[in-house]
Design a protein around this nucleic acid. Structure first.
Lengths: 164, 164
DNA sequence: ATACATGCAAACATTTTGCTTTGGC
DNA sequence: GCCAAAGCAAAATGTTTGCATGTAT
């Protein structure tokens, strides 16, 4: 049940730039540049992968932050459209920093829960425009996940009982 | 927060056929044709739309069933691949009966939570094959959702200073 | 008669809120 | 000093399990 997305943490400078941009946007909304906010943004920018609130509070640099604090920070980030929510069929919700120009779709093993990035070019963006045009929706984005049984789990599939 | 999928309940005969097929598959797995199972399948076949466990237990015909019973039935249906789970960014998980040949993607308003069907031809199926081939996954399916702000909510959006 | 299915209640995990204290501006 | 942020703790919500009883086979 571990997330193993294949994301390269960005270069330190990119990370700092990203953090600064986020802070700037948040400050314009009246938020303060607090120690917790900075630590959280820095982590999410450097490890651009889906994480639950529990995942985040287990991170070394965020361990001093209360879960309620992390929760409230993430909610604020989400309100500012800096963070997006992902439903990956686990009990807890996953969150991920929005990095302009980066979009990722995921491949999840329904047996072991492993989460991988899908590198294929995603053909869905044109549909977003169509939805805006035809349905009158604004701020449209999509979420695409593939579910299946990964090679490692395949032999042990309940429906295809392999005798070990 | 109401689901308003635009699904035509199937014809009664189709519904019965679907239910019979499900029961048959389940029986082969050792499940019994209980009253609760039949009521649940019948409802999910006739109202082929995403529903939470709470939604289901509020249904007239299922009101006599305990939530734990509904939970266990739905889990069994999911194990048998007769039901799929959907993460629509709400706290509760949505479930939907799998109807062979029918696939639906959804459009969710991030403001009011309204859930609509997307009627566009979904270009993702070829990718499923690619994933099976290139990543060695089996039993691959996808889940695609669009999120955005619906026309009704658009004017009242807190942080979208309409740049029309 | 046996084993699965159910109801009821309790345990659990996660999310959300209230209130007091701390800290950024 | 003012108001947002954080810490702590508790409430709210949804999911899961245990156990005694009912029911399909």
């Amino acid at each position: 049940m571990k997330a193993t997305a294949c994301h390269h943490p960005q270069q330190p400078q990119e990370v700092n730039l990203l953090v600064e941009n986020c802070v700037a946007k948040l400050r314009s909304r009246g938020l303060r540049r607090s120690q917790g906010l900075e630590a959280l943004l820095h982590h999410m920018a450097a490890h651009h992968r889906p994480a639950t609130l529990a995942d985040l509070s287990r991170v070394q640099d965020l361990a001093s932050l209360d879960q309620a604090t992390i929760y409230r920070l993430v909610m604020k980030l989400e309100s500012a459209s800096l963070v997006r929510r992902l439903g990956l069929h686990e009990r807890a919700t996953y969150f991920q920093l929005v990095v302009p120009g980066h979009h990722h779709d995921y491949l999840v093993c329904t047996s072991c829960g492993k989460i991988e990035d899908v590198e294929l070019t995603c053909p869905v963006e044109p549909l977003e425009r169509e939805i805006m045009a035809r349905r009158g929706y604004s701020h449209v984005y999509h979420e695409l996940e593939f579910f299946g049984i990964c090679p490692a789990c395949a032999p042990a599939t309940p429906e295809a009982p392999a005798i070990l």
